[in-house]
Computed example of a mutant assay.
Amino acid sequence: MRPRREADDACGIAQAAAVVGDWWSLLVLREIARGHVRFDQLAEELGVSRKVLAERLRALTDHGVLERRRYQERPPRHEYVLTEQGRGLLPVLVSLQDWADRWLLGDGTLTGQAPDDGAEARRVAALVGARVPAGVRLPGTDGAVHDPVSPTARATVLFAYPATGIPGLPADPKPSAVPGSAGCTLENRQFRAAWPEFEKSGVAVHGVSTQTPAEQAAFARAEELPFPLLSDDRLQLTAALRLPTFRAGQDLRVKRLILVIDAERTLRHALFPVTDIPAAVSRSLDLATACGR
């Protein structure tokens, strides 16, 4: 083993690598972000030996990244949840995924689009049948903090989009430099127009992006949206569902997709990539209405 250098004691990269810089530690964090918080769940999802898993959980807990909580007394059982310090690593996980999607699994192109048969499309398709983690809460444009899955609706349509314009700021007169990143205002307006049908069918609609709550609230007021927009600016939902992203300037943006989630939090349908927005809005209404029949 290489001797530790004194210069590394003041290097943030070296210090972070000492905590999460191996394969299993990163994958443990990935699975806990996805809602797999119990030891047996983690062992099954990761296919790792119980000894290795126990070592990584112990190290991450000792470093304050995870908290060990008892959920059963006899016999004693514990689950592992992210601390505030651990949640600070979610943007790191998403950035690693974004880098790999572009440079290792893709051809290096910066784009808000995705091929139908690419790694991102396969990952989104694999979400069908999974459950949305119960602990995710996102600030909404109505000033409340929301579960992205409505607790009262027959189903929830969750549509993710890169970013809307911000009222009061001049629009960029040039076409977007990132293909597929435009059209978010149109998408919100399409859902607004169809809202009476969603409401009549007992289906909730939530829009989600990585814009800040203030940016979303200004847009929602200007457009008079009848449904809340949720801010995932801390990338909780993006990390939990491993949603595909791209970089616009220095910001990570979620690529356009639509998820249909039933009342039991099970993801029933995933529409991705979305290229025909009006058709996708109509399709999501049909799929969501069929939930619970």
Rank of each mutant, 00 (worst) to 15 (best):
T141Q: 03
D172S: 10
P173H: 14
C291P: 06
S201I: 05
Q15A: 13
R253A: 06
L96Q: 08
R70Q: 11
V37N: 04
T61L: 07
R154Y: 11
A288N: 08
R154V: 03
T289L: 04
P175C: 08
Y80P: 07
A263Y: 01
Y71M: 10
F219H: 01
P278D: 01
L285H: 02
P196M: 07
L225A: 02
Q85Y: 08
A155I: 01
P91R: 12
G112Q: 01
T275C: 08
S49M: 13
A14Y: 12
A10Q: 14
R268M: 13
V94D: 06
A7L: 12
F198N: 01
R77F: 08
G140L: 03
T212R: 12
S181R: 00
A153F: 14
R293T: 14
G21Q: 13
F227D: 02
E45T: 13
L66W: 08
T109G: 04
S231W: 05
C184A: 05
L29Y: 07
E44V: 15
F227N: 00
D62Q: 07
Y80A: 12
G86Y: 09
A204G: 07
H146T: 08
S176I: 14
F272N: 00
E264D: 10
R268T: 14
H269N: 04
D262Y: 08
R2F: 14
L46R: 04
D142M: 11
V132M: 05
A121M: 00
R30H: 14
S150I: 09
P139W: 14
